[in-house]
Structure formats: C-alpha cells, structure tokens
C-alpha cells in the first residue's frame, strides 16, 4: 500500500454556507513529506483538520466526500475519533505548551490513553525528544514548566508531544511561522528524519519552505486543488498557470 490517505471528492462548508473545500481528490503517499501550499483562505488548514476530525469542534459541516486512511473512511460517524487522533497527530502554528512541565507535556497523550508504567513513559519522553532534535537541550530540565522555553524549543516540544503517541501520520500547520531561522532549520531537519517512519503532511509558511521540504506538493487556491505533483519538478516547472503565478510571486 503506497497510498496512506485517499481523499475522494471532499467538499466542505461553513455553517453560514460559504464553501471551504470544493471537490478535493488526492492520494497521499506513505513515508513522504506532502506539502499543501497556497495563499491564505485556500482550504489547506481546513483539509488538515479534516484528517484528524478536529473540525468536529467547529461549525463546519462536511458537505460530501470520503477520506480513507488505510482504506477506512474516517468521516464515517461510527469512526473511533479518539483512536484516530492518536493515529493522526497535529502540530499547530503557534506553539501551545500545556501548563505543566516538559515531561508532563510529552506524556499527556499517553496518560490519556491509560498508560501508567513509568518505564514506558520515560522511554517515550526520551525517544520523542530525540526525534524532535531537542533532547540534549532539555534533558536536564524535564521537570521545569514548558512555558519557560523559547518559542522554537516549545514548538519542538509540541512535536515531541505528538510523536510520543507513535502516530502514523503527522500533520503540521505552519509550524515554523514565528520561529527564528535556526529553529526553523531544526524543525525542517526533523521532518526529513520523520518521514522515514511517518507520513508527513505540511502546510508551509512560505513557498521557499515548501520547495525545500516537499516530496510531493499540492497547490490550493480558494478551496480548490489546482495542481498536485512531484515536489522536485512542481516548483521548477509548474503545469498550471495559476500555480506558476503564485510561485513567482505574481499574487499572494
């Protein structure tokens, strides 16, 4: 199975009727970094939040369509949403450290699931902080409040928090907006490592970041999928005029 996620003709509306996504169909490959890029309001974040059913919390109504993860439609009302969210983790644009220590942040998801064994929890803390390239910086202060860290460190802790649950898919919604270039570089490097084990979907905060990190890239414009293809070639040789215009900065 090369396609981890298959999206079939997904359409979505806001409660007031405005359309957010129109007939999106795409296949997302396993163990790769798929990038969703485009100007604001294009539907990228909305799509991301469909993948972990976070949209259930808002007044967005699914119009129609299916999202198959490992051949199961996650939009089905009978889906176990809790299990889904452990399988599909999300890192948000602003780092949101929970009001607890670094260690408690990381193990939060595991404790929710009922994991109590200290050995398992400690192991998860070390493993995920290493994967997020921040273990060396915080290993001596795991019991300090997470809010004491810098923005870039907080975001990597948030990534570790997600990885501690050993998800299969990792969603990142503009994770480096607001971070300094050094932290941004660390996060992007982490992505390259991550894709070996996980399926990574990234909404970048700039076209350049998209070009740096994408194995596959999808261009979204006002709720429609304009172009989707190989990351290497799409940025140098886009097929659609609108894609080219956006990449060249003719509109933003």
């Amino acid at each position: 199975m090369v396609d981890k996620i298959v999206i079939e003709n997904l359409s979505l509306q806001y409660a007031d009727g405005a359309e957010s996504l129109r007939g999106i169909s795409m296949e997302i490959r396993k163990n790769a970094v798929t990038v969703l890029f485009g100007p604001a309001g294009g539907g990228k974040s909305t799509l991301l939040r469909c993948l972990n059913r976070l949209n259930d919390l808002t007044d967005i109504k699914t119009g129609s369509g299916r999202i198959l993860i490992d051949d199961e439609n996650i939009l089905d009302p009978k889906t176990d949403v809790i299990a889904l969210r452990r399988k599909v983790g999300m890192v948000f644009a602003r780092p949101v450290p929970l009001p607890m220590s670094i260690r408690e942040n990381i193990i939060y998801g595991l404790e929710l699931a009922g994991e109590k064994r200290k050995s398992k929890l400690d192991e998860a803390v070390e493993r995920s902080l290493k994967l997020s390239a921040i273990w060396d910086e915080v290993k001596d202060r795991l019991d300090e409040p997470a809010i004491a860290l810098s923005g870039g460190q907080q975001q990597r802790v948030c990534l570790a928090r997600v990885l501690a649950l050993q998800p299969e898919i990792v969603l990142l919604d503009e994770p480096t907006s607001g971070l300094d270039p050094f932290s941004t570089g660390k996060v992007e490097a982490a992505l390259a490592e991550l894709k070996k084990e996980y399926t990574v979907i990234l909404v970048p905060h700039s076209v350049q970041q998209a070009a740096r990190t994408a194995d596959y890239a999808a261009f979204f414009l006002t709720g429609e999928l304009i172009e989707y293809g190989d990351g290497k070639t799409l940025f140098t040789n886009p097929k659609q005029k609108k894609t080219e215009d956006y990449i060249m900065g003719r509109f933003g």
Partner: peptide, 26 residues
C-alpha cells in the same frame, strides 16, 4: 485559553478528560 482545549482534543482526549485534567485545574 481555547488553545489548550484544541491541543488536548487533538491528542486524543475526550471533552471531560480535557476539562478535568487541564481546564478545571487552571
């Protein structure tokens, strides 16, 4: 902050777990 609830839910918490573990405490 609403962001705590969003993060908690995204990590697989039920509504009550979020309230009990984070919101009420804060």
């Amino acid at each position: 902050p609403q962001s705590f609830r969003t993060v908690s839910i995204s990590l697989g918490a039920t509504r009550w777990q979020t309230i009990n573990r984070i919101i009420l405490k804060e």
